[in-house]
């Protein structure tokens, strides 16, 4: 530990971060600040170069947005849609990870399954939207045809005009597109765990379920934190599918905050100022939630590292014992 803290190596930390920092300042920070600034101005309309800061009421745009019923709806929708797709997604991904990394019950063809499950993520959201629109077409479409010939429905159901059905479909599409991605990350995390830990547990006679909950999950914590945070950010920024599949409708049922932001900026009135205020509000919400997640999981980072060292030592002892 002490060796790494020694000052002579610190400069490499700065040195190796330079490319990132330069690219970051140029391509990310500038546009971000530009956006943030617009939120405090009266900049709207096309090609408007003559905008002013709102000196009297600097937070006017923010107040407008917070009082906007569509924004409130969109915030509610975003959270609901995220929960509706994330809980099944992480559950299935964890189950699949447990199955595919089980050292005792080798699943035959698991390589094939792992590869295939990620494939929905490869197709563009626009194609996925076209596909699902075709599947749920009304009054004539594959899903309606199947349900009617199976006797489930008497007459064709207008899925895309029904709020609950459309929401469920959007949540399903998100789930279907992303569970493979989550699974791959989790599996790569499990593969990164020192196999000696597992060997030691096996020697101790732990069952698969015990190993999963007591070894795999705790050791996956850093990767789980990554999954939780990125999918929360991704979920709260959900845009493609609601926009392309259902245009935020019907009756605002799938209007997410990002679709709302896009509408503010591009659907006709070019209200960049309001769009930017809405973006910043979302940024704050996400930042607070992420900070909470970090707080919950971060302390354990260090604890975990120590645990791992302990487990490693234990494993070595076990190995030594085995050798004796």
């Amino acid at each position: 530990m002490n060796r790494r803290k020694s000052f002579s190596y610190a400069k490499y930390g700065y040195l190796f971060s330079i490319p990132f920092i330069v690219a970051f300042i140029l391509f990310k920070l500038y546009p971000t600040i530009y956006t943030a600034v617009l939120g405090f101005t009266d900049c709207k309309g096309l090609g408007n170069t003559n905008w002013n800061f709102l000196v009297d009421e600097p937070f006017k745009n923010y107040i407008t947005i917070l009082n906007n019923p569509s924004f409130q709806t969109s915030l509610k929708n975003t959270v609901e849609l995220w929960i509706m797709n994330f809980i099944p997604q992480i559950t299935l991904a964890l189950i699949l990870t447990a199955w595919f990394t089980s050292r005792r019950n080798k699943i035959r063809g698991q390589g094939f399954f792992k590869v295939v499950f990620y494939m929905p993520n490869i197709i563009t959201a626009a194609s996925v939207a076209i596909l699902f629109n075709a599947l749920f077409a009304y009054p004539k479409g594959p899903v309606n045809d199947i349900l009617m010939s199976a006797g489930v429905l008497d007459e064709a159901f207008y899925f895309i005009n029904n709020k609950t059905a459309t929401r469920a479909i959007v949540a399903f599409i998100q789930f279907w597109m992303w569970y493979g991605n989550t699974m791959i990350i989790l599996i790569s995390g499990v593969l990164g765990i020192n196999p000696e830990i597992f060997e030691a547990a096996e020697v101790d006679g732990a069952s698969d379920v015990q190993i999963f909950f007591h070894i795999t999950l705790p050791n996956l914590r850093t990767i789980l934190l990554y999954v939780l945070i990125t999918s929360m950010i991704g979920g709260l920024n959900m845009y493609d599918i609601p926009k392309l599949f259902s245009l935020g409708g019907p009756d605002n049922a799938t209007l997410t905050t990002n679709v709302f932001i896009y509408n503010q900026a591009f659907s006709g009135s070019y209200m960049y100022n309001r769009a930017s205020a809405a973006s910043m509000i979302m940024f704050l919400i996400i930042a607070v939630l992420s900070a909470l997640l970090f707080l919950v999981m971060r302390d354990k980072d260090e604890i975990k590292r120590k645990k791992e060292q302990k487990a490693f030592a234990k494993a070595q002892r076990a190995l030594a014992k085995g050798a004796n």
């Binding site: 970051f24 990310k28 920070l29 500038y30 546009p31 971000t32 600040i33 530009y34 956006t35 945070i229 990125t230 950010i233 920024n237 845009y239 905050t257 990002n258 932001i261 896009y262 900026a265 960049y272 769009a275 930017s276 973006s279 979302m282 940024f283 996400i286 930042a287 992420s290």
Partner: peptide, 14 residues
């Protein structure tokens, strides 16, 4: 981490 959290739609304008 903060950069990750900013909605992408509007950044693209800038």
């Amino acid at each position: 981490m903060c950069v990750m959290m900013i909605p992408t739609q509007v950044i693209s304008i800038g």
